[in-house]
Computed example of a mutant assay.
Amino acid sequence: MSRRTSPSRRPHGTAPDPARPCPCGLPEPYAGCCGRFHRGEAAPTAERLMRSRYSAFVERDEPYLLRTWHPRTRPERLDLDPGMRWTGLEILATADGTAFHTTGTVEFRASYRGGSLHERSRFERVDGAWVYVDGDFPDA
């Protein structure tokens, strides 16, 4: 399952347009896709959490990124680069991570102006909600 997207950018500190396409690449408006997770709804699968975290990086939504990070691996804060421009997301592979699992992995490539990040992310359920644990970089 692979999908590439090109999110639009908004000025930092402004609310995202809920009707625009979601940065994660699914064919839904932001409000009904990742926006609902950013507002507090739990992502139903590890892949949807990963997509919503990508969208949160696009939107520079640090509170959401920290809230969806496993407590044992979560940093105290993030230093998001205001100059970083994410340009697309491609899901390369998924394993487990559904309502029937307690762990899952999502391998993806996130493109940014000037390069890309290839990661195999690990997710776990904590109190019923999917959270990001950590990842490795297959190309490194």
Rank of each mutant, 00 (worst) to 15 (best):
L65K: 02
F108Q: 12
G115V: 02
D134N: 06
A99T: 13
P27Q: 07
S52Y: 12
L89V: 04
T68N: 05
S8Y: 09
E76I: 00
R122W: 02
P29E: 13
D17I: 09
G13H: 05
R36T: 07
G97R: 08
P18A: 01
T105S: 12
G40N: 07
A129Q: 13
E47L: 05
D136E: 14
E90P: 01
P21R: 06
A110M: 05
T87A: 08
L92I: 09
H12K: 10
R122D: 06
D61W: 08
S121H: 01
L117W: 09
F37A: 07
H38G: 08
E124K: 13
C22W: 08
Y112L: 14
R10Y: 11
W130E: 08
R85S: 14
E107V: 06
D17E: 10
F137R: 15
M1H: 10
M1G: 14
D134A: 09
R4N: 13
S2Y: 00
R9E: 13
R67Y: 01
G135I: 12
F137W: 14
M1D: 11
F123D: 04
T5M: 00
A95M: 02
G114P: 14
H118F: 01
R53Y: 00
T87S: 15
R9D: 11
A99W: 03
D136T: 10
Y54I: 05
V126Q: 10
F57T: 05
P16A: 15
S55R: 09
C33R: 11
P63L: 03
R36L: 04
L78K: 02
W130D: 10
E124I: 14
G88V: 13
R85T: 15
M84P: 00
S8W: 11
R39L: 03
P7D: 06
S8P: 08
A99I: 07
P63V: 01
V58C: 13
F108E: 12
A46P: 04
D127C: 10
E28F: 06
A99V: 10
F123T: 01
T102I: 11
D79P: 05
H118Y: 05
P82Y: 05
L117H: 11
F137S: 15
D96A: 14
P7M: 05
L80S: 11
A43N: 02
R72D: 15
L89K: 04
C33E: 10
H70R: 01
G25P: 02
G32N: 14
T73Y: 09
Y112S: 08
G40R: 07
C24M: 00
S116H: 15
H70T: 00
M1F: 07
F108P: 08
Y64G: 11
G128S: 02
L49S: 12
A140Y: 00
R51T: 04
P71W: 10
R120H: 09
M50E: 13
R3S: 03
W69I: 02
M50Y: 11
E47W: 00
T45L: 04
R120G: 04
G32E: 15
R20C: 07
S8H: 15
T103I: 10
T94N: 01
P23A: 08
E28S: 06
L89A: 05
R125Y: 04
D17M: 09
T87G: 10
V131Q: 06
P138I: 12
W130L: 12
C24G: 00
R51F: 04
R113S: 03
P23S: 05
P71S: 12
P138M: 13
R10Q: 13
H118V: 15
T94D: 01
R109G: 03
D17L: 08
A42W: 00
P7S: 07
S2R: 07
L89Q: 02
A129N: 09
